[in-house]
Amino acid sequence: MKRFLIASLLLSLSFASFSQEVNVGDKAPVFSTLADDGSTWNADDYLGDKFIVVYFYPAAMTGGCTKQACAYRDLKTEIDEANAVVVGISGDNIEGLQLFKKANHLNFPLLSDANGEIAKKFGVPLRDGGTITREIDGHSFDLVRGATASRWTFIIDKNGTIVYKNTDVDATKDSDEILKFIKNNS
Results as ranks from 00 to 15, higher is better:
F4S: 14
I6D: 06
S8Y: 07
L9G: 15
L9A: 15
L11Y: 09
F15C: 12
A16Y: 11
A16I: 11
S17K: 14
S17Y: 13
F18G: 15
F18L: 15
N23C: 12
N23P: 03
N23D: 14
G25T: 10
D26A: 06
K27P: 07
A28H: 04
A28D: 03
F31M: 13
T33N: 13
A35Q: 05
D37V: 06
G38Q: 06
D44R: 09
D44Q: 13
Y46Q: 01
D49R: 14
K50P: 00
K50V: 03
F51T: 04
Y55F: 14
Y55Q: 01
F56P: 01
A60T: 09
M61A: 12
T66R: 03
Q68S: 07
C70G: 00
C70S: 09
A71V: 08
Y72A: 06
R73E: 03
R73F: 05
K76E: 10
E78I: 04
E78K: 13
I79N: 00
D80I: 11
A82H: 04
V85T: 11
V85F: 05
V86S: 02
V86T: 12
V87T: 12
I89F: 09
S90K: 00
S90Q: 01
G91N: 02
D92Q: 06
N93T: 01
E95W: 10
L97P: 09
L97K: 10
Q98K: 14
L99M: 10
F100G: 06
K101T: 10
K102P: 11
N104A: 07
H105W: 08
L106T: 02
N107V: 11
P109S: 13
P109C: 06
L111F: 08
N115K: 11
N115A: 11
N115Q: 09
N115H: 07
G116L: 00
E117V: 05
I118M: 00
I118K: 00
I118P: 01
K120T: 07
K121F: 01
F122W: 02
G123N: 04
V124W: 02
P125R: 02
L126A: 03
R127K: 14
D128P: 03
G129F: 04
T131H: 05
I132H: 08
I136Y: 11
H139A: 15
S140L: 11
F141P: 03
F141T: 02
L143I: 14
G146M: 10
G146H: 09
G146P: 07
A147S: 15
T148Y: 02
A149R: 05
W152T: 13
F154C: 04
F154H: 00
F154R: 00
F154G: 00
I155F: 06
I155P: 01
K158T: 10
N159D: 15
N159M: 05
G160Y: 05
I162G: 05
Y164N: 00
K165F: 08
K165T: 06
N166T: 09
T167V: 12
T167D: 13
D168I: 08
D174V: 06
E177N: 11
K180R: 13
K180G: 12
N185R: 03
S186T: 12
